[in-house]
Design a protein around this nucleic acid. Structure first.
Length: 508
DNA sequence: AAATTTCTGCAGGCGTGCCC
DNA sequence: GGGCACGCCTGCAGAAATTT
């Protein structure tokens, strides 16, 4: 069927493609404007019950159309699949396909999905399977990147820090995009299409993110935003970006997805994850942390605490910040026993009050901090045992550090203790610096399973050192792992740690 | 066993092209 | 120019498969 209008258009398209393109662009713009106006009108105005019903009916109609289209295209796909896979159409599956999944019983649905998945997978070429896998992986990665970027934007930070992280994130996005397109060997047209798709704001999250980037980009006036009038063009075109321009006003920091932000904040709670003491595990995403419970139990706790902001397990695990490691990913040189955790928590509390007057080292450094200097990597065994008169008073270095804040009140700290139910839980404490130091002294000196904190640290240090030696000699260790390890242990123990046999207490 | 990946179904948003 | 239908892209939930 061909009307005069269509004929005119086809003629124009053929004879004058440029004018036709202009016409399409104009139509596109007008249609967009019309939709926006219609949407705005609906949102702003008040409506009678009849109008609302009509509106909802239209929406429902549209939904139905989509559903029909979906089923139509699915049928088309499945026909192709059956043909290519050589499946007989008069099978149980085809009988089942007539029934809508939502009308199926749970068992039928399970069986239906299984067969569908099998048929579809069987029909796909190897290349197609790989492409789909990569596509999905890329999709999920983008979701995570966008979530992370939104998080970075909404987290208050020092101006210079903020600029640095933002620039880094934008750089990462650009860099990764470039790498992908190169790998996919795109044609110029495909490249352009992909690049434009990135600026195609289909979801509120994307709209928000693009708005943010447009506002901060040095060439943002090219995006034709309403805010371009307020911009300092010289600053934009200049090499230097001013921090103040990159600052987001508080009102615009509004969190588009409260649940997502809540989940990310939940992950970095002390009872969900603990901060790793080693700076070398930190990444651009922040200081490394390790979860102290499984994703599943954390998700259950989250659901219990935030019933108004529900999040599925899938999304919950997707939202895990990159700097939060899983429970099973504790680095080999880290210890998360209660003993170390408590000392670490109290040192952190002290450091908050010490401020710029000098910071205490983290708990893994306590071995050297609390013992006499030896000029080697390890302290003298007398100092570990407390037999050295010079360093027998473990609290002396702390008292020197804290002499100016000794009487400070209202200090808060946490420590892991057994609750009434017998479960280890982080307990909040409050008092003066003096109280905190008393608590710290108990943590340092009170033996846990017969081992003081320093003895425990020393054992961990020794074991990690042995592990490093084994790792650096893989060939030897494969030939006679146990024999060599024993020899090394004896040799080193006799030369370096004469009284190491006294330290035979197993680590906690 | 837990964590992670892969997949499907579904719905919303939007661009596009056609018709009146 | 306004209205409409189609089709694509995307996000999300949930289940199953796979990996750790």
């Amino acid at each position: 069927m061909s009307t005069a209008s269509i004929r005119r258009r086809r003629k124009l398209e053929k004879e004058n493609p440029e004018t036709y393109a202009e016409l399409l662009a104009k139509e596109r713009e007008a249609a967009k404007k019309y939709r926006q106006e219609k949407k705005r009108h609906w949102e702003e105005g008040t409506h009678s019950q009849a109008e609302i019903e009509e509106y909802n009916a239209q929406k429902e109609k549209r939904r139905q159309q989509k559903r029909d289209y979906y089923l139509k295209s699915k049928a088309r796909r499945s026909r192709q699949t059956k043909n290519s896979a050589g499946v007989n159409p008069h099978t149980k599956n085809s009988e089942q396909a007539k029934k809508r999944p939502k009308d199926m019983s749970p068992n039928e649905y399970r069986e239906y999905r299984r067969s569908q998945k099998r048929a579809q997978l069987a029909a796909l070429s190897h290349q197609k399977k790989t492409a789909i896998r990569l596509k999905n992986r890329e999709r999920m990665r983008k979701v995570r990147e966008a979530t992370k970027l939104a998080k970075i934007d909404s987290t208050p930070a020092e101006p210079s820090d903020r600029v640095g992280r933002l620039k880094q994130s934008v750089y990462n996005l650009n860099h990764k995009f470039r790498a992908k397109t190169k790998k996919l060997a795109m044609s110029p047209m495909e490249y352009a299409q992909t690049a434009l798709n990135l600026l195609n704001p289909r979801t509120p999250e994307k709209k928000q993110a693009i708005r943010e980037l447009q506002r901060k980009h040095p060439c943002r006036f090219l995006f034709n935003t309403q805010e371009s009038d307020d911009l300092d063009v010289e600053g934009e075109l200049g090499i230097q970006l001013q921090d103040s321009l990159l600052e987001v006003p508080e009102a615009e920091e509004e969190i588009s997805k409260p649940a997502h932000n809540m989940v990310q904040l939940f992950y970095i709670r002390d009872d969900v994850s603990q901060k790793l003491p080693h700076a070398h595990y930190s990444t651009k995403h922040g200081a490394a942390r390790v979860m102290v419970q499984t994703i599943k139990s954390a998700h259950q706790l989250y659901k219990k605490e935030h019933p108004s902001l529900p999040v599925s397990l899938t999304l919950f695990q997707t939202l895990r910040p990159k700097n939060v490691r899983l429970l099973g990913s504790v680095p080999i040189d880290s210890c998360f026993c209660v003993c170390c955790a408590n000392v670490g928590l109290m040192i952190n509390a002290l450091n908050k009050h010490l401020g710029s007057s000098g910071q205490l080292p983290n708990e893994t450094e306590m071995l050297r901090f609390l013992t006499c200097p030896t000029g080697k990597d390890w302290p003298d065994i007398k100092c570990i045992d407390g037999a050295c008169v010079e360093c027998a008073n473990r609290m002396r270095p702390f008292q020197i550090f804290c002499r100016d804040i000794y009487t400070t009140q209202g200090v808060r700290w946490k420590r892991w203790e057994k609750s009434e139910a017998g479960k280890l839980e982080p307990m909040e404490k409050e008092g003066s610096i003096r109280d905190l130091l008393t608590d710290l002294q108990i943590a340092l000196e009170e033996p846990t399973k017969g081992t003081s904190f320093l003895q425990h640290l020393f054992t961990a240090f020794w074991q990690y050192r042995q592990f490093k030696i084994c790792r650096s000699n893989p060939k030897e260790s494969t030939t006679s792992r146990s024999g060599i390890l024993t020899t090394q242990r004896h040799a080193q123990a006799s030369t370096e740690f004469p009284t190491i046999k006294d330290m035979s207490t197993p680590p906690t």
